[in-house]
Design a binder for these strands. Structure first.
Lengths: 201, 201, 201, 201
DNA sequence: TATGAATGAGCTTTCATTCAT
DNA sequence: TATGAATGAAAGCTCATTCAT
């Protein structure tokens, strides 16, 4: 039943998906929807929660724990792209629909995103700790956090690019992950070696 | 009067912002809004068009034409972050609200984004042509395009991070641009030198 | 529920009868009206169709088929006046309201009227064929049609006169029919005998 | 200025003719309309009054006073048909639009119609007084009034038939008047001679 | 339990009407 | 005087939500 709701919400948007539509798509009657989930808001929240949990679980399950940070990031990204490619409606619900709505949902999604950002931050920090040649090259926490945000944003953008039907020759999940790792990790290495880009150069 | 509409749409979303709200926020009466902009859809379209044009103009104006690609990218990113930071509602309208809506708006925004992606792609390609040590290291077009998408997504994510009031200690526009340049351009240099990351490593 | 709509439309007119009024008059809520009849236009169309069918059925049922033309006309008129007297709102809807509205309704009513005019035309023609003393007195088709139009118009006028509450001492249905038969049929007979009125006389 | 209003009201109906339309059609600005005629209702009333007066004057002017009743009727009818044919908008305003509206206008039109009916009644009564062979054949007042109503209704119907563009081969004003005189006056003569139609025959 | 039937509340849109110039 | 600019009030329509069965 949530499946139908996720599909409806992802494709038509929160407001345009009427409860009639959802009930009909689920093959049940409207009062039944209200029996299980008390309101449209709660229904949407349940959908968001389920998809968020599903995505986090997919990423978590894909990460190779104990491996070096770069391998962990790589495996996590692979899992992320694989999941979003396989569940485009869920991804659209989280990334496109939930963010347009006020308090309850956007925060829920923001919390999920923050969790992922924190995980990436920690990976970068770990790599930085190991790879930094000297203490004075240690990156500031804000800098690390910024990198994590940038990386997550890049991943989202690539997931959209790969997922939308508009460009059928978009990259596969593996290719997207590889592109991003090339982009990010190599840059990170350079950064740690003091070869960052600076405007004054 | 468009200002009020942009604020209302950005903060409450298209559907939840009623014409009453917008009129009241603008300090005028509802029929006046209909006199100037004929319907809610046209009003939204006008807002989207104005903000998109404003953003594109800001980025265009900031780019130092004729400079080397990295400086062009840097100046464009600085302009982008400065503009989004100064017009958070406009940025939210474009990035969050307009994408959830069907035909006219999402396409308009997608076109603007595609324009920016194309510009970035061209910068990366120019840099690659100059920086590649040997012809066989030339990057494939799809690879370049993927990098551009990643970079734009990262920029959007950083703009969100910097802009939302949730984290008042987010980076300034200059810091965000610097972070992103470090992240991207250094990585790009490595990539061209054949030092890309690969899972098999 | 149509009853209430017919009353409201007949008494207040199409535009002045609001859906709130109709719903309240029917003792139900407005969305229910929209559930059964999808819009104000369709509601009005349904009313017009029902009343038109009802009137035509009443006239058809009253006509004594097989009788001589004069008796057929007499019985049809009696049925007509009886029906309009018993359903003044329906008659007002057809005769007064529906004619002021454009495409769908006015045409529907015009079609009904044309049907009746055709029937009357045919009765007059039959009478003329039988009653004409010589072929050269045969009436032209246009002449017959004009007489039918005049007769129907006279009937409508008498129905209004009898029906409106303004003159409580208006004629009964039988009296109206008798008046009209006297007026029309006798005149018709004279006409056939070459005793028509002519200005040059 | 009233011309424009009459045209707009007759063609689009009272409600669908907006004050903007009327002002634009008249070539003046809206507040000017309000300066001369204080409201839409008063504007409509003024139109109705003017057209009613114009029609009554046309009929009055056409009647040959002092002539025998039949000639008076004939000349009045000719004037009536000539006027309605020459002023179709005015006739539509009176006959179609004004009747659909409540108190002020419908009554005004009803009063004009009553005046004409009274005039016709008086003509018929005069003819009856002269033509009746014996006092016991005197028609009752109600009977005469009914005949007048029938005749007026027949005239209206013929005016519609002649006026609407739907049937371009409709009769001319003279033909319509002739048809009606044949229909009515001959019948009247018969009636006075005791040769009326009766159902029991 | 599961639903057909019904509604309260709200939104977009329009138009007769009036100031301030 | 004549008008551009502005609005109060109301109408058609929809939808999340709930009874009575």
């Amino acid at each position: 039943m949530l499946d139908a709701a996720v599909r409806a919400f992802a494709r038509r948007g929160y407001q345009n998906a009427s409860m009639d539509d959802i009930a009909e798509l689920a093959g049940v009657s409207k009062p039944l929807v209200y029996l299980y989930l008390n309101s449209k808001e709660e229904l949407f929240a349940a959908c968001v929660r389920r998809e968020a949990a599903s995505l986090v679980a997919a990423v978590r399950g894909a990460v190779e724990r104990g491996a070096p940070p770069d391998r962990q990031l790589w495996s996590g990204l692979s899992g992320f792209f694989a999941h979003t490619a396989r569940h485009p409606d869920g991804w659209a619900l989280l990334h496109v629909q939930a963010r347009t709505h006020g308090h309850p949902y956007a925060h829920e999604v923001a919390a999920m995103r923050a969790e992922i950002v924190a995980f990436v931050t920690q990976l970068i920090a770990a790599a930085a700790r190991k790879g930094a040649p000297s203490p004075e090259r240690r990156m500031a926490a804000a800098e690390v956090s910024g990198l994590a945000h940038a990386l997550v944003g890049a991943a989202e953008s690539l997931a959209d690019w790969a997922g939308d039907g508009a460009e059928p020759d978009g990259p596969s999940a593996q290719e997207a992950a590889a592109t991003l790792m090339n982009f990010a990790w190599a840059g990170l290495g350079n950064l740690l070696c003091g070869q960052g880009w600076s405007p004054a150069r």
